[in-house]
Design a protein around this nucleic acid. Structure first.
Lengths: 243, 243
DNA sequence: CGGAATGTTGATATGCCTCAACTAAAGTGG
DNA sequence: CCACTTTAGTTGAGGCATATCAACATTCCG
């Protein structure tokens, strides 16, 4: 029976060489499992936390609360991601994390993580690297939402999600589950729901990809990536096999 | 003669308790100084680097290069900031860093930094924390550029820059130097230069702040912060004295 | 089967981009 | 120090893209 934390070592191995001892330390971390209902918050803005989560299954999202009660979604996370790693070294949460659909997370205490880092600094560096990739994803979101037109912007989001889902082994053929609705896409990309809907239809019409009922289907990856100005370098993954 | 790296320890002490030995280790790091001309790149997209920089004086910016040759500015850095800390653990740069005006940086080899982290893990954690605050600033930029109207957006940028400049001791009375022109503000906030200009006039008319020839002047901080929906918590600074 | 949530479509208005002309300031060389 | 060039900032007119609003269709779920 492998540890549920195997999703994490799998992810870290994407970019860091881990000794078998390193793997054993991580997968041996004591943890508790928590199931989240769709929409449930894992942690809220202003919270303090003594644990960090690793997504085991399902999707979670970071978001800012806006004055009117609306949200700005900031990033999405799937198996192996650590959506609240920042709580390790920053006391107060400046954003919230919620489950998009049903999700399962493993909770590990900061104390246990820090102890692991002391024993094997390379483990700390590997997770530090993860948080740096997170930052790269935020930067790309800044550019995406500020400098790109709706069609490119939406295409880019889909490219990123599909690309990352593929690395996490969540794709089936040319499709993957993305637990998100049109309102939430709008709150991610800074577009109204009407525009999201119409842009979605453009993408479908261009025969590059389609999104329906929580499932993203890629019809022509090369064309989609080109149209979306998607360059996966910012994800800093090991080069995957071509699609 | 204090080390130029004193600006860094000053910054880290904002949030981390450093022993005098820690301070000595950081300020004793061997480094070289590099002067940058206005607009000069410190590091480019695609580069690899064996050193990290600490800003000693002046301003630098991170940016993405866009297809048409335009830029998307991502963040700005002043004395004590490490604009390319991510190169410590990520091989290839996914963005560039340039000087906005004339600037001076201290370059420290990754090797020396990593050796310091091995000796004193707390130092690594302190700088890790800095990179997490960077990420928080990117998140806020996503929200700012995606969910806020021009006046709020520009006001928020000014609030952040002034607030950080104040923490770095760069403010004089109610003003601070911001080496940036209208085109660059536009490329930061995803607005056309015409809109930047007109929005600037609105802010001036509201008597909250004004920006002229590279100098930001705050006339009414409370009103500006309110109008800009500025909540400094995401900067995770120790509470500064009220303005 | 009924109600709620989600997605779809059309009409309208307006905010912002684009373009172009112009002014002001800064930098340069005689 | 002044004439000249270059860069930066300002303003107005016009058109289009996208937000907003409202009505309706579809899917989901108990």
């Amino acid at each position: 029976m492998p540890s549920p934390l195997r999703v994490l070592t799998r992810k870290l191995k994407e970019h860091t060489r881990l000794s078998s001892e390193d793997v054993a330390i991580i997968e041996g971390l004591s943890h508790s499992l928590r199931c989240l209902h769709p929409g449930e918050d894992l942690i809220r803005q202003g919270d303090h936390s003594a644990v960090s989560a690793v997504v085991i299954s399902g999707f979670t999202a970071r978001y800012h609360l806006l004055p009117a009660g609306a949200r700005q979604y900031l990033s999405f996370h799937m198996a192996g991601d650590m959506p609240d790693s920042q709580s390790l070294f920053i006391e107060t949460m400046d954003h919230a994390v919620c489950a998009m659909g049903p999700a399962e997370v493993a909770l590990v205490t900061h104390k246990a993580l820090l102890a692991a880092f002391e024993r094997r600094p390379a483990l700390g560096f590997a997770i530090w690297r993860e948080t740096l990739i997170d930052a790269a994803i935020f930067r790309e979101a800044v550019t995406n939402n500020s400098a790109r037109k709706p069609r490119v912007r939406l295409g880019h989001l889909f490219c990123e999600l599909f690309y990352r889902a593929r690395a996490s082994g969540l794709t089936v053929e040319d499709s993957c589950p993305i637990q998100i609705n049109l309102v939430q896409i709008g709150e991610t990309l800074g577009m109204s729901i009407a525009t999201v809907n119409r842009t979605l239809q453009q993408l479908r019409a261009s025969r590059t990809c389609s999104f329906e009922r929580g499932r993203l289907q890629i019809h022509n990856w090369d064309a989609l990536a080109r149209l979306s100005q998607f360059n996966p370098e910012y994800l800093h993954q090991r080069k995957p096999p071509p699609l």
